[in-house]
Lab assay of single mutants.
Amino acid sequence: ATVHVKGVTYHFDNPEQAEKFAKRMAKELNGEVHVDGNTWHVD
């Protein structure tokens, strides 16, 4: 799974980790999470 945060890409072997990371980053950055298959975007 892949997480894109403000133009930076993070790779996770575990999709659950990717989801938790994306949601945590969105919270910290006051952003929104969008999911597209195995790819998470934090804007």
Rank of each mutant, 00 (worst) to 15 (best):
D43W: 14
F12D: 00
V3P: 00
H34A: 05
G31P: 01
P15C: 10
K27R: 11
V5R: 02
M25N: 03
E28D: 07
Q17R: 06
V8H: 11
E28Y: 10
K27G: 07
D13L: 08
Y10G: 01
T39Y: 09
L29F: 07
K23Y: 13
E16S: 10
G7Q: 04
V3M: 01
H11C: 09
D36W: 10
E28A: 10
N14Y: 09
K6Q: 13
G7D: 07
V33Y: 14
K6V: 06
T2D: 07
V8M: 12
T9K: 10
H41F: 15
A18Q: 00
R24V: 09
N30K: 10
G37Y: 03
H11K: 08
R24F: 13
T39Q: 15
H4R: 13
V3S: 00
Y10L: 05
D36T: 11
A18V: 00
M25A: 06
D43L: 15
N38K: 06
P15M: 15
E28M: 13
T39L: 06
M25E: 03
D43P: 03
A22R: 01
T39M: 13
A18K: 00
K23R: 13
T39E: 15
A18S: 01
N38P: 05
H34S: 08
R24P: 00
W40A: 02
K6I: 07
A1H: 14
H41T: 13
V42L: 03
H41P: 02
D43K: 09
E28S: 07
V5I: 11
D13V: 08
N38T: 08
G37Q: 04
Q17L: 12
L29S: 05
Y10P: 00
P15W: 11
P15T: 11
A22Q: 01
A1E: 04
G7F: 04
T2R: 13
V42H: 01
L29K: 03
K20G: 08
V42W: 02
A26R: 02
W40I: 08
V5E: 00
V5W: 04
Y10H: 06
D13Q: 09
N38W: 08
N38L: 08
T39D: 13
V3W: 00
K6W: 10
A1M: 08
Q17C: 14
N38F: 10
P15G: 09
H41N: 05
H34V: 07
Q17P: 04
D43C: 15
N38M: 07
E19K: 06
N38R: 06
M25R: 05
L29E: 03
V5T: 03
A18W: 00
K23S: 08
N30G: 14
A1Q: 09
A26F: 02
K20D: 14
K23M: 13
V42R: 00
E16Y: 09
H4D: 06
G37E: 05
L29M: 09
K20H: 11
D13E: 12
D36Y: 10
H4K: 13
N30P: 05
H41R: 08
K20E: 15
V5H: 04
K20W: 08
E16W: 10
T39S: 15
E19R: 06
G31K: 05
E16R: 09
E16N: 08
G31H: 04
A22G: 02
V33C: 08
G37M: 04
K6T: 07
K20M: 12
D13G: 07
K23G: 05
N14I: 07
H34E: 04
A22T: 02
N14E: 10
M25Q: 05
L29W: 04
V35Q: 15
Q17W: 07
F12M: 03
W40F: 14
V33G: 02
N14P: 01
T9A: 11
H11R: 08
P15D: 10
R24W: 12
R24I: 12
D36N: 12
L29T: 06
D13A: 11
E16M: 10
T2K: 13
E32R: 13
T9D: 08
K27F: 12
E32I: 14
R24Y: 13
V42F: 03
R24T: 11
V5D: 01
F21A: 04
D43I: 15
R24D: 13
H41E: 07
E32V: 15
D43A: 10
E28N: 06
K23L: 12
V33A: 14
V42I: 08
N30Y: 06
W40L: 07
F12P: 00
A18M: 01
H41D: 05
F21D: 01
A18H: 00
V3F: 01
Y10R: 03
T9P: 06
H34D: 04
N30E: 07
T9Q: 10
G7L: 04
D36P: 01
T2A: 09
H41A: 05
V8L: 11
K23H: 13
V8E: 10
D13F: 06
D13S: 11
H4W: 13
Q17S: 12
P15R: 12
H11G: 04
R24H: 13
D13H: 07
Q17M: 12
E28F: 10
F12R: 00
L29N: 04
H4E: 09
G7I: 02
N38D: 08
T9Y: 13
W40H: 03
G37R: 04
G37F: 03
K27A: 12
K23V: 11
F12E: 00
G37S: 03
V3Q: 00
Q17G: 07
Q17V: 09
V5N: 02
W40E: 02
D13Y: 06
E32D: 12
N30F: 07
T9E: 10
E28K: 11
V5Y: 06
V5Q: 01
K27I: 12
G31M: 15
V42E: 02
V8T: 10
K6A: 13
N14C: 10
G37A: 04
T2Q: 11
A1D: 05
H4V: 15
F12V: 01
F12N: 00
A18R: 01
K20V: 10
T2N: 09
A1R: 05
V33L: 12
E32C: 15
V42M: 02
V35K: 15
T9M: 12
H11Y: 15
Q17E: 15
Y10I: 06
Y10V: 05
H41V: 15
